[in-house]
Amino acid sequence: MDDPNKVWPTGLTVGESEELHRNIIQGTQIFGMIAALAHLLAYIYSPWLK
């Protein structure tokens, strides 16, 4: 509580929250690419299940 670097209410420092944010952005990018590729392959196999 007495550490001025910690930000209310999570108690994370700016550096820690930046690292978390970086991981979330990176994870979203990876999952996005995977989802796009999986959809493309599903479309190639069976165009929207037609």
Partner: peptide, 24 residues
């Protein structure tokens, strides 16, 4: 974990396309 998840997520479609089935 994300890499393994990603590989397994695209794998079934990739295998189905590899087999030349459907519209592949």
């Amino acid at each position: 974990t994300m890499l393994q998840f990603g590989g397994l997520a695209i794998m079934p479609f990739a295998l189905l396309v590899l087999s030349g089935g459907g519209n592949a």
